[in-house]
Amino acid sequence: MLDVKGLRKEFGELVAVRDLYFQLYPGDVFGFIGPNGAGKTTTIKMLATLLEPTAGTAALNGIDIVRHPEEVRPLLGYMPDFFGLYEGITVTEYLEFFAAAYRIPKSQRAAVIENVLELTDLTVKRDAYVETLSRGMQQRLCLAKCLVHDPLLLLLDEPASGLDPRARIEIKELIRELGAMGKIVLVSSHILPELADFCNKIGIIEKGELLVWGAVDDIVRQLQANRVLEIKPLGEIEPLIRRLEREAHVLSIEPQNGSLYVHFSGGLEEQADLLTALVRDGYRIATFREEPLDLEDVFMQITKGEVS
């Protein structure tokens, strides 16, 4: 379990990260969302034990990252947003080096490397020189390097940046698979559709402050106090608009392509009552559904577009 407790980082007078609190469990894929300069990378570097927090701490499986960085490091894998690879060596040599550096016994190294090559789909490139790999493959190699010591926590800072669409999809699949393997994956991005597909939890950070965090569904539900209902009647829509304007929970109505998008302040009960009333009044309703909020809507509702 990763337990982040009041993590804070100040650079002089600038507060880059403000007292973060969140918990993640094995299997969680946590999308860390925020605009550029919001404090994502600083937070990740603190969790990776590369940057000492000004205050607060975090514990990975009960081990304090501030007091015992050397004990935590074997439990985490970190892929920075800008990463480099040693050149002049092959993919296998690169992984062998890191396997040795993580003190994996010599007798187990070949099997471990075989596994991570397979997982990252790099088996066919095992003898290729690192510098000859495409950007997407280098990204996967970097991830493979993070996996050689089988870490519990993976910190991936903008893992899909600079990748072509195919490579993006591949890396997303890989992250999803890692979550399924029981790892805690913290993946940052400022591109929402990237995260929407495979995160079960998100945290939105702005100006160093974690505005909201939790399960994606829970956050969406919380933010759905103002729901949008799509109502598509059979026949003319003008009478229906006039009817809806009389309803107390209807805030506004936007006609679009034969449907009405109704901003509705009521809950599920009130929705059901509205539908019953409309049918009772003789309106023929072909579609009556709540518009689902996506991560972009959530993000736009919560953030103000500020950086620290």
Binding site: L50, P74, F83, F98
Partner: peptide
Amino acid sequence: EALALTRL
């Protein structure tokens, strides 16, 4: 950073 995080 990758080197720093190893067990070396």
